[in-house]
């Protein structure tokens, strides 16, 4: 029974700086229903992410129906989330929340290639909710812990680590600094 059966995709904790530098999309297998992943520079293979930060801006960019774009800031950068008619609950939360506010997002990573060939990442939320400051701070510690754990394994032989290393030539020091910066921001308060 250990094999097969249903397993929910884990939600990876990634900082905005790392998420926004992720460009490698991959699928497990050829099947059109195979889950899609975004591989980050430290080797998080994300089918789902869990992030928290401060909602600083929001805008309805839809033409006919409402289509909300939100900017969520963590200690390292900003996530962009888009919620439209297919994410009614999340769109409703974005519509009624007045920035600034701490916010938690579970969602699917998505990427978009601009005409110039830049890849822009965003999150398509499954669920968004306003949270308190303690919960947000806790997420920073968790994300730091998990990012550091990935950095630790980056030189190892795990397929995701090898792939990330080869594709991004990951500068470990840069991401270690990012983690430190995030943790220091908590102590500064």
């Amino acid at each position: 029974m250990a094999e097969g059966g249903y397993f929910r995709e884990v939600a990876h904790r990634v900082f905005a700086a790392e998420f926004n530098e992720s460009t490698l999309q991959a699928r497990d297998g050829e099947d059109q229903y195979a889950p899609q992943y975004l591989l980050t520079p430290t080797g998080a293979k994300c089918n789902r992410v869990f992030v928290m930060g401060t909602l600083t801006e929001k805008e309805d960019v839809g033409t006919d129906a409402q289509f909300w774009r939100g900017r969520i800031v963590d200690p390292t950068g900003a996530f962009t989330v888009y919620a439209g008619q297919y994410q009614p609950e999340a769109a409703a939360v974005l519509a009624k929340t007045v920035p600034p506010e701490f916010i938690a997002v579970v969602g699917k990573p998505s990427t978009y290639e601009t005409k110039e060939g830049h890849i822009v990442t965003s999150i398509r939320p499954e669920y968004i909710q306003v949270v308190d400051a303690d919960t947000r701070d806790r997420w920073v510690v968790d994300a730091a812990k998990l990012t550091f754990a990935r950095l630790d394994k980056l030189r190892g032989a795990e397929p995701d680590a090898v792939k990330a290393r080869e594709f991004y030539s990951t500068n470990e020091a840069q991401y270690r600094d990012m983690v430190v910066q995030a943790l220091e921001s908590l102590r500064a308060q």
Partner: peptide, 15 residues
Amino acid sequence: PLKLGEKASELLRKI
């Protein structure tokens, strides 16, 4: 329990 500062410091030492 929260123990935020403690956890953050511990991680920083580890890094």
